[in-house]
């Protein structure tokens, strides 16, 4: 079964949102267009629309997260859904309950949607296969696999600033090997037609045969970001030094840290993105993170609109299907 098979219903509409891989371009564009419609909601005095009134969304976080969980929480609330936040890492699994049992218990609470973050790749896919037919699953990040709403909010941010994907050069810099954000970015941007997509990093942080996904690999930052329209920097985890993938954070910053000087190699109007949380002085210099080309905080804002769009599309489809 392909990822797309499980994500789409018989009419090709979104039923779960597990991975961007395999989804058609028209559907990604539809998500972006719907997010445009939801974006103004956040600017209003009353930041709520009644679309999902009476529906229950459960945030199941098997791995700690602040930003993603908060923005999913806000997105659901702005759609007037009831929200249940469950930090499962700290509860059931420590008592030895299996994932399948945890899911059955949550199903019994009559939720309509699970937003799932899990440290193991494929967890969201597994959960989508397991849940009762009336429950939809949104992947809030699974292991190193995908983080599809992040991929879509990055695409949304890029479209807001650069309009046409088919003319862009985009570089993704840093720890691609361990990054679910990078994988979702690559899938989204390739599907949306970006012709020049690059990944930049030392060989220890670039996963094998990533070229198969239609990207060019650079191990030199200057070459990798030259004339780019967008530079996406990835977070570097401290563990990478412990597992001998890198010598030190200092050396990483010297070779791959995005500084104002280096950013001048990209196009003058290039934008700088980061999925957060940022390590200042490791993957990005403060002057760049806080500079005029940075759109890092806009990404956070847009994340709410994109997540509203995905939730509304899935539960809206479901409501239609139920009525029919």
């Amino acid at each position: 079964m392909s990822a797309a098979d499980i994500q789409l219903d018989a009419q090709g509409r979104l039923r779960h949102f597990i991975a961007i891989e395999g989804l058609p371009r028209a559907l990604l564009t539809q998500i972006l267009d719907n997010a445009e419609r939801f974006a103004p909601v956040g600017d209003r005095a009353v930041k709520k629309v009644p679309l999902l009134r009476g529906r229950t969304v459960a945030n199941l976080f098997f791995e700690p997260s602040t930003r993603t969980r908060t923005t999913f929480d806000l997105a659901a609330k702005r759609l007037s859904a009831d929200v249940l936040n469950l930090n499962i890492e700290a509860s059931s699994t420590k008592k030895g309950e299996s994932l399948a049992d945890t899911l059955r218990n949550l199903e019994a609470m009559q939720c309509d949607m699970f937003v799932v973050r899990h440290q193991v790749s494929g967890a969201a896919h597994f959960i989508a296969q397991q849940v009762a037919p009336h429950i939809s699953v949104i992947n809030g990040g699974d292991g190193r696999h995908e983080h599809p709403t992040q991929g879509m909010l990055d695409a949304f941010t890029i479209r807001r600033h650069k309009q046409d994907f088919t003319r862009l050069s985009i570089a993704i810099v840093g720890d691609v090997a361990h990054s679910r954000v990078a994988r979702s970015n690559i899938q989204a941007l390739k599907t949306l037609g970006v012709p020049d997509l690059r990944v930049v990093g030392p060989k220890t942080l670039i996963p094998p045969q990533i070229e198969a996904q239609g990207v060019q690999v650079f191990d030199d930052l200057d070459e990798g970001i030259r004339d780019c329209d967008v530079v996406i920097t990835l977070r570097l985890q401290q563990e990478r030094m412990q597992s001998a993938l890198l010598p030190s954070a200092n050396e990483y910053f010297r070779e791959y840290g995005l500084t104002a000087e280096r950013l001048r190699l990209a196009k003058p109007d290039a934008i700088v993105m980061h999925p957060g949380p940022i390590n200042r002085g490791v993957e990005i210099d403060s002057a760049v993170a806080d500079g005029v080309q940075s759109v890092i905080l806009q990404q956070v804002t847009y994340g709410i609109a994109v997540r509203m769009a995905v939730m509304a599309m899935i539960l809206g489809n479901q409501a239609l299907a139920g009525a029919a």
Binding site: E21, S121, H145, Q209
Partner: peptide, 13 residues
């Protein structure tokens, strides 16, 4: 197996 599939699925190879 470490290769294109481990990269695509994000599973350690």
């Amino acid at each position: 197996h470490e290769g294109a599939v481990s990269t695509r699925l994000g599973i350690p190879g």
